[in-house]
């Protein structure tokens, strides 16, 4: 088992757009170097070079099958990054839910003012 990669190593590895593209491809399932190269319009040495970097930080695993090297997405290494993005997304999702509710309540209050309804003192504004 290789040493555990640091988060920085992982960041450096995924900072390169083609390496991210490789990871995305591999989410669909394992692929040979040639299949990866073809899908991303790279030559085989370029693809191998990127795969080597990804392998060094444990983002991909490799096995031999005859003369082919088959790569698969491996890593727990991406998990912290992924979890953070997930949390960030949900944090903003909930924040925008609150804004949505707030905008609705503002508009309801405004409509009520404009139509000069009897003020209803129960529901207005309490659910902010």
């Amino acid at each position: 088992m290789a040493r555990l990669s640091t988060t920085t190593d992982v960041f450096n590895a995924i900072a390169e757009p083609q390496r991210r593209a490789i990871l995305e491809l591999l989410t669909e399932g394992e692929l040979s170097v040639n299949e990866i190269a073809e899908a991303l319009d790279l030559n085989q040495p370029q693809a191998s070079k990127h795969l080597r970097v990804l392998h060094e930080v444990d983002l991909v695993d490799v096995r031999r099958e005859g003369r082919q090297r088959i790569y698969q997405l491996q890593s727990e290494s991406l998990k912290p990054v992924h979890d953070w993005v997930q949390q960030f997304e949900q944090f903003w999702g909930r924040r925008l839910d609150r804004l949505d509710d707030y905008l609705q309540s503002l508009q309801k209050a405004k409509t009520r003012e404009e139509t000069n309804d009897e003020p209803s003192n129960t529901e207005d504004g309490t659910d902010l």
Binding site: L73, S75, H82, Q87, F88, Q90, F91
Partner: peptide
């Protein structure tokens, strides 16, 4: 997430499942 720490997150998507 400093503000998000109080919240748990739910489902991980396809990538994480794969991982």
């Amino acid at each position: 997430m400093e503000e998000g720490m109080t919240q748990s997150w739910d489902q991980l998507d396809a990538l994480l499942t794969q991982l």
